[in-house]
């Protein structure tokens, strides 16, 4: 379970205070206008922003003292998930050992992960020889290997076409369900939330304006959600 308890973040002249609970193994979508603070929440959970103790708990553990690499979290960004000068296999292998010193069995795991995201033949290619969707699938393969209980998605599929985005969402959901992962996803597309998320939250002006199970969330919109959906 992820519990965010009055997380307070101040950046220059902007600030946010957020509380949110996401059940273990569930899928939570964050929607809302640009600049509302959606990505900031993910960055705080992943440890890229300083925050005080007693604000973010994952499975009861306080995140504040942990460095990004030590948190039970994998995060996918919109781009630059892969190092452009390394092959796909090397990029995925970083999920097992960031020094890239792998033994034979570990390399086998890399190829298994690539199989799971249907990139079997692409292991030795450089990322730029892949399509946008393939690149994000490779990043997903790395996230699988890191075996972290929480997966944070910061609009990793935003640049893909509608059909491809749907496929990727399905893939992520299936994999997460299989591995028992909890997902928080930032998206600009409310239909993504409807499609994949158990729970949806509307982030606005540095606060959560509405939150609930996705079905009731969209069925009973508050004024804020109506204004956002147009």
């Amino acid at each position: 379970m992820i519990r965010i308890d009055h997380l307070f973040i101040a950046l220059d002249d902007w600030q946010m205070t957020v509380s949110l609970t996401v059940k273990a193994g569930s899928f939570c979508a964050l929607i809302g206008p640009s600049g509302a603070g959606k990505s900031t929440i993910l960055n705080a959970i992943a440890g890229f922003l300083p925050h005080g103790s007693g604000q973010i708990f994952i499975d009861g553990q306080d995140m504040a003292p942990l460095a990004p690499a030590d948190r039970p979290v994998s995060m996918l960004f919109q781009d630059h998930n892969l190092f452009n000068h390394m092959t796909v296999a090397q990029n995925v292998a970083l999920g097992i050992n960031p020094t890239l010193k792998l033994n034979k069995q570990q390399w086998q795991k890399v190829h298994d992960a690539l199989d799971q995201v249907e990139l079997s033949g692409m292991a030795e290619r450089l990322p730029r020889a892949l399509s946008g969707g393939q690149r994000q699938r490779a990043s997903l393969a790395r996230a699988i290997l890191r075996e972290r209980p929480v997966l944070l998605l910061d609009e990793p599929f935003a640049a893909l076409g509608p059909a491809l985005r749907k496929d990727m969402l399905k893939l992520v959901s299936t994999l997460a369900e299989k591995n028992g992962q909890t997902i928080i996803m930032v998206t600009h597309h409310p239909e993504d939330a409807r499609l994949a998320a158990d729970q949806t939250a509307l982030v606005q002006d540095g606060a959560i304006a509405q939150v609930g199970p996705s079905e009731t969330f969209f069925a009973n919109p508050t004024e804020a959600l109506k204004a956002y959906m147009g």
Partner: peptide, 18 residues
Amino acid sequence: YGKQIQQLGMNSKTAIRL
């Protein structure tokens, strides 16, 4: 890549090499 390097937990030596 700053965030990736942090998230993957590369130390300075590894980050320089890779």
